[in-house]
Design a protein around this nucleic acid. Structure first.
Lengths: 216, 216
DNA sequence: GGACCGAGGTAAGGTAAGTTACCGTTCCGG
DNA sequence: CCGGAACGGTAACTTACCTTACCTCGGTCC
């Protein structure tokens, strides 16, 4: 069996397996309540392997969060949104945002980061900058472009972008985060997204045909 | 009561001190990373006191979260919002919502509950029902009333209420939650609230003035 | 005034978990 | 074919911590 590719898993495979197992346990129980043993139980082998690769529990955790966040947030790259139709752009944007937010991976990252933001402030900062922060910034640019085209009127694009992201996230996301809602169907997600975009664009106030408007 | 004013703290005082110290530690480090010793260090005395009062670490934690949430969420009772002016009602509603969301107590409760929702599902459910859930329901009624008065047009009041709450919460709340923003000034909070209400009512789409009167 | 009683403090039991010392095994270069 | 270096498994070390047995002390009631 000294043959070449018997079944000795390569280094990267082993590392990926470790991270996968770590994700399952860290993201379910949180940092402090997770033991290295619990991770090892899932992939077999020895703690030595983990310590050789990541150095410590903290090292494993930071590597896990960093890589998971990067992977989950990659879908938020919205550099190529179609700028011509603002509503379509917002729908597309909101859809991606929602898909990312409710993905199990990002829910796990989110849950742990919220709690461990004090212990790992760098992780929290990196997560925000690469995720919600970057998305809000990009959305802000989209809104400003629409503003110069005269399609929208708003005072502060950054605040508006934050509002839009919050509206998409919603209590909907909160319920999922708290485990109070089993699994959102794509239809439910779609409904929330459409509704959010429409309210963001036109508001809820009733307007009769252009005869009068209330104050402001 | 013989030695009335000695300095033997009464039972309730002792209990309150325990909960206060528990809040400081639990809400900063999370459930698993908090030790009973760390709580005792803050108030002196012995662990025996805590175990006599709360029975276990879990008992202390559930009591803490329940009472903290009840206290912090009391401000969300919006039974007496002024229904006559929808914009004023929404502003008032959003202001209270924001004040509660950014209060240190609720931030602590929120942080821990998000992580421990799996371990203490009852706490998560109770927190949502008494807080965001109740608020959304009440807001939904307000919107429906406005709907019957013909002031607004919307398809699903419940979804709209969730949107509004999400828009108020915003990335703003997320930044605070992650410790990325030091302390929001009342002016900043006010600005976010006003902006959210205005967008919720009227949207951001530009509408050419109805030729009659728009200057204000 | 003396005896019961409960609250609170001391300290230890027992377990769980992060980390590492030690050793076998496998693979590569000479 | 052989020496060594790196990888990985066993098991122990050490620490932290929840929980509880035991004891002390102050107060209350007869």
């Amino acid at each position: 069996m000294a043959a070449h590719a018997a079944k000795r898993p390569t280094h990267d495979e082993r590392r990926a397996a470790m991270l996968e197992a770590a994700a399952a346990v860290f993201f379910e129980h949180g940092y402090a309540a997770t033991s290295i043993d619990a991770i090892i139980e899932r992939i077999g082998g020895s703690k030595r392997t983990i310590y050789n690769e990541f150095g410590s529990k903290e090292g494993l955790f930071t590597a896990l969060v960093t890589e998971s966040a990067d992977k989950a947030l990659a879908a938020l790259r919205v550099d190529e949104v179609d700028q011509r139709d603002l509503r379509q752009a917002l729908l597309e944007f909101a859809k991606r945002l929602m898909d990312v937010y409710i993905s199990p991976t990002l829910l796990g990252v989110f849950r742990t980061i919220v709690t461990e933001a004090q212990r790992f402030p760098d992780l929290a900062r990196a997560f925000y900058d690469k995720g919600p922060g970057r998305a809000a910034q990009r959305l802000c640019e989209v809104l400003e472009a629409a503003q110069t085209r005269g399609e929208v009127q708003l005072e502060d694009c950054a605040i508006a972008a934050d509002h839009f992201m919050g509206m998409v996230r919603d209590n909907f996301h909160l319920r999922i985060l708290l485990g109070l809602r089993p699994e959102p169907t794509p239809e439910a997600v779609e409904a929330v997204v459409v509704s959010a975009v429409d309210i963001f664009l036109d508001g809820i106030r009733y307007r009769r045909p252009p005869a009068s408007m209330l104050d402001k």
